Simulated assay, not measured.
Amino acid sequence: MRRFEGRVALVTGAARGIGRAIAVRLAEEGAAVALADRDEDGVVAAAAAIGAGAMPLACDVVDRASVDAAVSAVIARHGRLDVLVNNVGVSSGTAFEEIDDAAWREQAGPTLHGAVRCVQAALPHLLASPVGGAVVTIGSINGLAAFGDLVYSAAKAGLQSLNQNLAVLYSRRELAARGSSSRGIRFNLVAPGTIRTPAWTDGGPERMARLDRLDRLYPAGRVGEPEDIAAAVAFLASDDASWITGIVLPVDGGALTGPLSFD
């Protein structure tokens, strides 16, 4: 499939894991992809591995100037932006009693406010997209049910509300009512379950042992792979989902269908 031929996509948190898999999938389907991450060496390596003109960008979503510069660089090279994927999420598992202002800023800031900054910077270009803009945000099943990790979960839940409100605010109907000829922007959110990313595989023997246990607990018989999320993102960002906006799509191996222990 070449669903993104001629289109330009920006993926944040793209140096590794889910973000990198999303960038690979969009590039395979024809998109000119810009990969943004605060890990400059990692994002350069990821872009080089993709090839095909993939564009690495050093970008920290907690810094508005950095986000603005990244979007400006994409426009300077390609002249347009059609797809934005918000993939940054920070989790430290801070115990509730130990959550102070710094812990809240360090986790909720990049996860929730980082997405806001990215959407705001990309907004005029997404509105100008001749095919209609698409924003896909990576949430979590932690935002849908109580799986612990309170700050991270609260931020992911906030992303769902943000997604729904923006889907209405920048819908074609609402823009037309304001006299705009834009085709509008579709906003959707993917909520992954446990995904086999470097956060798990580089976490030492204890983390790997826990991941092995989760393999057996998921109704689908395994934890997810980054490519599972990339496939969902590619669908929601494509014209195949042209009548889908404002949704939360769990990609969770059945975790939300029944009791699942993450202890």
Rank of each mutant, 00 (worst) to 15 (best):
P56N: 10
L57K: 07
L57P: 09
A58E: 13
D60I: 06
V62L: 13
D63I: 03
D63T: 05
S66Y: 10
A69Y: 06
A70C: 09
A73V: 04
A73I: 03
V74D: 09
I75L: 15
H78S: 12
R80Q: 15
L81H: 07
D82W: 00
L84D: 04
L84I: 08
V85F: 07
N86M: 06
N87P: 02
V88Q: 03
G93R: 12
T94A: 13
T94Y: 04
I99P: 02
E106W: 05
E106F: 08
P110Y: 09
L112W: 10
A115Q: 11
A115C: 14
L123M: 13
L127V: 03
L127D: 03
S129E: 03
P130V: 12
V131S: 13
G133T: 01
V135A: 00
V135H: 00
V136P: 04
G139C: 02
S140Y: 05
I141S: 02
I141K: 03
N142C: 10
A145P: 04
V151K: 01
S153L: 08
A155E: 09
K156H: 04
K156F: 05
L159C: 01
L159A: 01
Q160G: 14
N165M: 14
A167I: 08
Y170I: 06
Y170P: 01
S171H: 10
S171D: 09
E174Y: 12
E174P: 00
L175C: 11
I185N: 05
R186I: 00
T194C: 10
I195L: 05
